[in-house]
């Protein structure tokens, strides 16, 4: 297992490095001079030149890259253009809100998706199965920002059951949770569909396996067979899928944060783009990339811990 974890970690470092390289190329290729963009049209040439030197833009490209690369790995993502605050601090200030939002989305998708998929597989071909199928496709097909807007209109504006905007009173966990319900549902609802379909498909496959027939032939109760012998295997591809799905949830989170006027990395990036605060944009993108890679790593390690075959194949 340790071997597996180390190899998987090495892969993650490689992926993040590649992401940094791509991000650097992107900044470099964006037309326009970052210094003039940052300072606006009324800046003097001397001001632009000073900023250019401060940002290291006068150096050769490979020095710039090494500076960026080494800086990024040591947590130095540059400074915010106007206030001069370190970008990392700005991003980390917003990060918890986004992480909680995504955790909420995952909770919805797991808590609803796994039982629904399991149920559909056991009642295969029944009306319930077909209902779950239709529902899954429906929630997958509807974009998350549409879900966010409708949830806001129905539950906050019309019914007034749940708060419409913000993240709740700081320090009041109950209030924060209530504020989390709708945005996290918007982020996670599509994934209820993906997970239900995935769990159903892999459950059906596992239930056909000969070891399940053996378990039946040993007279094990249906419950034991379904949950302990079949679901423990059927869940594995779903965990991997969730690891990948977090990337998509991150982009849904941007919409949810804008629609519900929640603080968070998505909102931060959105505002930064509007104010051309590019260091914040790259910093936030890099941090979310690292988080995405990290969560993927965790998903794979969970699969490794649950599946003895994966563990020993590394």
């Amino acid at each position: 297992m340790l071997n597996y974890a180390i190899k998987r970690l090495g892969l993650s470092v490689a992926i993040v490095s590649l992401a940094m390289f791509l991000l650097f190329c992107m900044i470099y290729l964006v037309p326009g001079d970052p210094a003039s963009v940052a300072l606006g049209p009324r800046a003097t040439d001397a001001m632009k030149e000073a900023l250019r030197v401060k940002m290291g833009l006068d150096q050769p490209i490979w020095v710039q890259f090494m500076n960026f690369f080494m800086g990024a790995w040591t947590g130095d993502l540059g400074e915010e253009v106007l206030s001069g605050r370190p970008v990392l601090d700005v991003v980390f200030e917003q990060l918890p809100y986004t992480l909680v939002l995504i955790a909420g989305g995952i909770s919805w998708s797991v808590a609803l998706g796994i039982p629904l998929g399991c149920w559909a597989a056991i009642k295969r071909g029944s009306l319930a199965d077909r209902m779950v199928g239709i529902l899954s496709v429906a929630v997958i097909a509807v974009p998350s920002f549409v879900i966010a807007i409708y949830a806001l209109l129905i539950f906050s504006v019309t019914l007034r059951w749940l708060p419409a905007i913000g993240a709740g009173e700081p320090g009041d966990v109950g209030d924060q949770l209530i504020h989390l319900i709708l945005p996290s549902l918007a982020v996670g609802l599509g994934w209820v569909g993906y997970i239900a379909r995935m769990v159903r498909a892999s459950m059906l496959e596992v239930l056909e396996a000969s070891h399940i027939r053996t378990a039946r032939a040993f007279g094990l109760p249906d419950r034991t067979i379904t949950y302990r012998y079949a679901l423990t295997i059927a869940i594995l591809p779903t965990i991997t899928l969730l690891g990948v799905g977090i990337g998509q949830m991150l982009s849904s989170a941007v919409f949810a944060e804008i629609v519900f006027a929640r603080p968070g990395v998505g909102k931060l990036v959105y505002d930064a783009i509007l104010t051309r605060n590019f260091p914040v944009v790259t910093g936030a993108v890099l941090v979310t990339t690292v988080i995405f890679v990290l969560l993927n790593l965790i998903a794979d390690l969970i699969v490794g811990a649950l599946d003895p075959r994966v563990r020993s194949s590394f």
Binding site: A209, S210, H211, T214, A215, R228, Y229, T232, I233, L306, D307, P308, R309
Partner: peptide, 10 residues
């Protein structure tokens, strides 16, 4: 089938 008769994750 001895290969598949036992549960792989238990």
């Amino acid at each position: 089938d001895p290969m598949g008769a036992l549960n792989p994750v238990l």
